[in-house]
C-alpha cells in the first residue's frame, strides 16, 4: 500500500535550513492499522502530510499503491487525495456554514461526485443519521469528529490518515472515536494511519512506529 524509501524533508528557514525528516524508510501493507508516536517536533505531522500527498518530499521515493507519487504536480496530488485518501484532523476541520450532511457530501465532491445516499450511509455508520441537518456549531466535539470520519469514509478511500483524532476531545468521546475507527478497520479493511500522543490509543493498533528527530527510532507490534 505505502512504501517510503529514504524520504527526507527540508524546510528553508530564511538562510538556514530546517531538516524535519532525515531519511524515512517504511512499508505499510494494505489493511494495516498503524499508530505513529513521538514527541513534538519529531516529524510525525510532516510524515503524515507527505503520506497524505499534501506535500512533496525533498528527496527519496514514495510509492502509493505501487505508483511513484513524490514528483507529481500539485493537481495530480489533489486528484490522489480526492480518490485515495481520507483525512481526519485533530481540529475536525468541518466547514461551519454547512450542515453535517453537506460536509460529508463535500468529501465526495472532488472525488467523482456527490451521492446523497452514500453520504447518509456514512453518517449512519458513525451513528449520526439523526443529526444530518445540524451545523457543526450545534454538535459536540465528539459528534463533529464523527462527522469528519463520515466525510473521510464516504468516498470509500483505500487509505485513511488521522492526525491526533482524539487530541481535542475528552477521554470518553476519544474512546468512542477510537472504537469507531477500529471497527471501520475491522469491518471494511481500510488501511489506517494514526498519529497520536496517547499510548492507550496507540495500543488499539496493530503496529506502533516511534519517531524521534525525524527518524524512525523503533517499531513495535501490539
Amino acid at each position: 500500500m505505502i512504501k517510503l524509501q529514504d524520504m527526507t524533508k527540508v524546510y528553508p528557514m530564511g538562510k538556514r535550513e530546517l531538516t524535519v525528516l532525515r531519511g524515512i524508510s517504511l512499508v505499510i501493507e494494505k489493511g494495516e492499522l498503524v499508530a505513529i508516536m513521538g514527541p513534538s517536533g519529531s516529524g510525525k505531522s510532516t510524515m503524515l502530510n507527505l503520506i497524505g500527498c499534501l506535500d512533496k518530499p525533498t528527496s527519496g521515493n514514495y510509492y502509493l499503491e505501487d505508483r511513484e507519487v513524490s514528483r507529481l504536480s500539485s493537481d495530480e496530488l489533489a486528484q490522489i487525495r480526492g480518490q485515495k485518501i481520507g483525512f481526519i484532523f485533530q481540529t475536525f476541520n468541518l466547514l461551519p456554514r454547512l450542515s453535517a450532511l453537506a460536509n460529508v457530501e463535500l468529501g465526495m465532491r472532488y472525488a467523482g461526485g456527490v451521492d446523497r445516499q452514500r453520504a447518509m450511509e456514512a453518517l449512519t455508520s458513525v451513528g449520526l443519521s439523526d443529526r444530518a441537518n445540524h451545523r457543526p456549531t450545534e454538535l459536540s466535539g465528539g459528534e463533529q469528529q464523527r462527522v469528519a470520519i463520515a466525510r473521510a469514509i464516504a468516498k470509500k478511500p483505500p487509505l485513511i490518515l488521522a492526525d491526533e483524532p482524539t487530541g481535542n476531545l475528552d477521554s470518553r468521546s476519544g474512546e468512542e472515536i477510537i472504537s469507531i475507527l477500529t471497527s471501520l478497520h475491522a469491518e471494511q479493511g481500510i488501511t489506517l494511519l494514526m498519529v497520536t500522543h496517547n499510548a492507550n490509543i496507540a495500543h488499539h493498533c496493530q503496529r506502533i512506529i516511534h519517531l524521534m528527530d525525524g527518524q524512525i527510532e523503533s517499531e513495535e507490534k501490539v
Binding site: D75, A78, R81, G82, L106
Partner: peptide, 11 residues
C-alpha cells in the same frame, strides 16, 4: 485548505 485536502484541484 480543507477543500484542497479533500481533493480540490487549483481549477
Amino acid at each position: 485548505g480543507i477543500r484542497k485536502a479533500l481533493g480540490a484541484r487549483e481549477r
